[in-house]
Design a protein around this nucleic acid. Sequence first.
DNA 1: TTTATTTACGGAAACGTTTTCGGAAACGTG
DNA 2: CACGTTTCCGAAAACGTTTCCGTAAATAAA
Lengths: 336, 336
Amino acid sequence: MSVDIKMLAKNLNLSISTISRALRDSYEISDVTKTRVREMAEKLNYHPNPYASSLRKHKSMTIAVVIPEITNNFFALAINGIEYVAQEKNYHVLIYLTHENIKKEIGFANHLQNGRVDGIMISLSSETNNYDHLIELKSKGVPIVFFDRICESIESSYITTDDYESGFAATEHLISCGCKKIAYLDLSRYLSISNKRMLGYMSALEKHHISIDERLVMRFTNNNAENEELISKMLTGPNRPDGIFASVEKLAIASYNVCERLKIKIPEQLKIISFSNLEISSLLSPSLTTITQPAYEIGKQAALQLFRYLEKKNMMNVHEKIILKSTLIPRGSTRA
Amino acid sequence: MSVDIKMLAKNLNLSISTISRALRDSYEISDVTKTRVREMAEKLNYHPNPYASSLRKHKSMTIAVVIPEITNNFFALAINGIEYVAQEKNYHVLIYLTHENIKKEIGFANHLQNGRVDGIMISLSSETNNYDHLIELKSKGVPIVFFDRICESIESSYITTDDYESGFAATEHLISCGCKKIAYLDLSRYLSISNKRMLGYMSALEKHHISIDERLVMRFTNNNAENEELISKMLTGPNRPDGIFASVEKLAIASYNVCERLKIKIPEQLKIISFSNLEISSLLSPSLTTITQPAYEIGKQAALQLFRYLEKKNMMNVHEKIILKSTLIPRGSTRA
DNA sequence: TTTATTTACGGAAACGTTTTCGGAAACGTG
DNA sequence: CACGTTTCCGAAAACGTTTCCGTAAATAAA
């Protein structure tokens, strides 16, 4: 079928091993044969079979990215950063979407024990409250780098942002704009980033002597319609907030939609701040005050750390914990 | 190192071939041994080596998606659709980003001749004006499905949208809103979708007896700053348009940004319509009139067609050409 | 000149599967 | 009972590489 190393050998009257070595630029091969081999390979349009190579070398030249969703600017940007590094290293990147479903995450983790990839980068699903699948994966020797939605109870490298500080800053920003009743909207009660943001939120309230109303700390699902319903109830109910701090972009969008329907004026009646990587936050009506994470850089750093694992096996036990800063960008949705 | 089929065989006092067949549920194996094998595999946490399997079977269980960029809602949604189908079929998906660079596209195409994937789905880069790399790839027997930015001169399946009609409708919509001088903004002079949209644009102008001003048919690059500069020049120059038809979301965003800087009022002074899959078009200020493509469905259909190729080799010569409809959603940016 | 070393290459095993071929035992049929 | 047919399984080749080992010739060291 396809031209293989054996055919090259035959055409050049050389042995298979010589061909292999010549192509890999081995010192054992003379320069003249190297160029002969290379030219013949070029001429016959030879492409080494990656699966044969991977089988023999126990190296797949492939990494996996496991993320909750891709229709989210944060993750799209992160993948961009990851893919940039992967291209540099001549690696291939497999994408797995959990859709915030822990069962899928477990399925992927278990599957990836088989050597298909040399390492994985993962951002946990919002449902993930047990890490056995990842512990087992790691125990199999698969390097794991967590990014953004990290898992602190597993000893491994991660890269995330200053979520507590950002949560604090976001809340304080709302307070400084005059908010007295601030709701915190989140996807998960499990994720460490969620909890850190919430802690920041609570600390800020405490600092400013605002009592915490548990009814204003709300969790949502992956179902947009349901989410808007819930937000709608909150905004029409008895203890309606005057400020919203959304932990995820989509919850801010949902809030905007609800406000439009309910004719609630932002920022006059309700101020909104949100974690977001929407490049058009400034074009929204009103423009959205955001906390923006360095998503591309997170992806890039995560990939670089994964390659640090891959390139030196003695690095397998030296983990890096990187925390980048997010930036708060005040815009119209929190104008006092 | 890892538990392999040989170890299973030893533990069960069976031959390797029996294990292999039992795991693949072959009719040649009795039910009792099948369950014995399965239980032992479970117990030992056996995971078959995919590379050994792929090498032997000449099947990678992997498909490639080659796209220009991922930070674009259209492509993110398309990937979502693709990944959905791939998960159903137990396939793996590799992602390659060309960043609108034909050299990268050629590099990927050449590389993918090596059998790493069973088929590829591609949306051309805006620079791609020569298809030799894809022709060669196809001649190697790699099934190709084009989506959105298709290549009509290669006989293969594709799935795209009614670009001519949409271009016509978009332009006519602007005209019906009172526009007399309409600019057409695009990324590429090569892509078939670009040219169809442009033809639709021109036909609509013609139908309404508006002469075509070549200076208002503009091509942009992947560089946002440069693009805004160009748009800015156009909007301050002598033959400033009163309507913009953007072929790509990012050019509409750029136009919004420029208008904000130049204090040009949308839609009073300038109306804008754009191809876009932004789910928040309605929340922009003003809300953006869009032509929205069924991106998720495009990805899904493309993947389904690819699997039609893969599942029956005699399908390799029956190509499907699917054209889905986009929908024009009038919003604030074209209010008369 | 003899011996050690380097250079340049070939043979063959190995990676972990799948599959072809073959065959023994059990079963069914006349 | 003799024969063909299933049923169930094993041996070994094959997939296309990489690498371990060996070695002849060329070169350097003694």
